[in-house]
Nucleic acid binder design. Structure first.
Lengths: 116, 116
DNA sequence: CCGGATCCTATTTGATACTG
DNA sequence: CAGTATCAAATAGGATCCGG
């Protein structure tokens, strides 16, 4: 049994999944590989996500220390940018492997029926 | 929007997560890298998982074609073995990366407080 | 030994409206 | 622009018992 950021995990794989699991976290992280993004930029890229859900997932990613939030108070149109932390960048190989496997599965096994 | 095995995914990363996501799937898959395992062998290795949950996750992994189930009817003590399919074996690099990152996070960032 | 069936709880996600 | 609040729905996961 392992502990990370106050949560318990039965296995080192589930620890990682606790950080990147959930419906949207890998999607957010994958977009952030390309650099900083604002809240609304993320939202538009992600299409069907709701404000609340995006907000929650961003908070959790911050709590686990893989993304950071920068606020620019310059002028009334508030500006907030999200980006990977150095720690978060160590996830990039995994994220890319996950994206590649998704593509691979689509190309090679999408049409198969469950007939085995 | 992508489709795989009858389910919809907004991104190729979420497709992969749909297959390996959930609290126990990576744990199951990770143990199966080492070879075939019986239901009870898995259960013992996994400690806190309940019968129902293990059963469900195994079914879902089968439906997605990444593991296979072999039944040996030889004698009343039923014997069922689970193992990775060829398709499932393409997940091994991801699973090992996930396990390694979990270890890495434990060693390097476990003690940190959320004080950023 | 291997799970299916049933019931229940907890967590996650979504819809919608509203605010500094 | 970048969220938060509130409510409801969906999903995941657990406890327990039972049967082939």
């Amino acid at each position: 049994m392992h502990q990370f950021k106050g949560k318990q995990y039965p296995c080192c794989t589930s620890l990682t999944m606790g950080v990147i699991g959930g419906k949207w976290k890998t999607v957010i992280l994958f977009y952030l590989i390309g650099g900083k993004l604002r809240y609304n930029e993320l939202r538009k890229k992600m299409g069907t996500v709701t404000e609340r859900t995006l907000s929650l997932q961003l908070q959790q990613l911050q709590e686990d220390g893989v993304i950071q939030r920068e606020v620019f108070y310059s002028k009334p149109p508030l500006k907030v940018e999200y980006s990977l932390t150095e720690f978060g960048k160590t996830l990039i190989p995994i994220l890319e492997a996950i994206a590649q496997w998704g593509d691979y599965a689509l190309e090679n096994h999408s049409a198969e029926e469950n007939t085995q």
